[in-house]
Amino acid sequence: MTERVLARIADTSIDVAEVEDFVAGREHGAVVTFRGVVRDHDGGETVTALDYQGHPDAEEFLRRVCTAVAAESGLPVAAVHRVGALTIGDVALAASVAAPHRAEAFAACQALVDRIKVEVPIWKKQHYDGRASDWVGL
């Protein structure tokens, strides 16, 4: 079976509706979407902005993860990850899975996001209020 997969690294705003529409279908009663959103705090400090940087092959890694989750679940999978300069409230990641019923869609979307965080080479520089910026995760 050919997996139904959308995987993209974007340097402009993510169109979340497009990500959801990609997975939706007449047979699917559940569409679960995760939005990773830039928040204004981390570890007790005020965050003012973020820069995301992707490896040149990040999209290929993202596609591998999406394809694996689609193959394991048998469900359509879509994920778009933003790179570049983001501000508070911007969507950094939109990840959607559709399924006939909600339990499979929730489970597959959770697995998808967990794997994206671990397997896709993307880095995040956090800018703070009142001190120097740093790379997250070191």
Binding site: H55, H81, A92, I116, K117, V120, I122, W123, G137
Partner: peptide, 10 residues
């Protein structure tokens, strides 16, 4: 060879 710091996407 590419040097990859810990990933922090999502």
């Amino acid at each position: 060879a590419d040097v990859l710091p810990p990933f922090a996407g999502g």
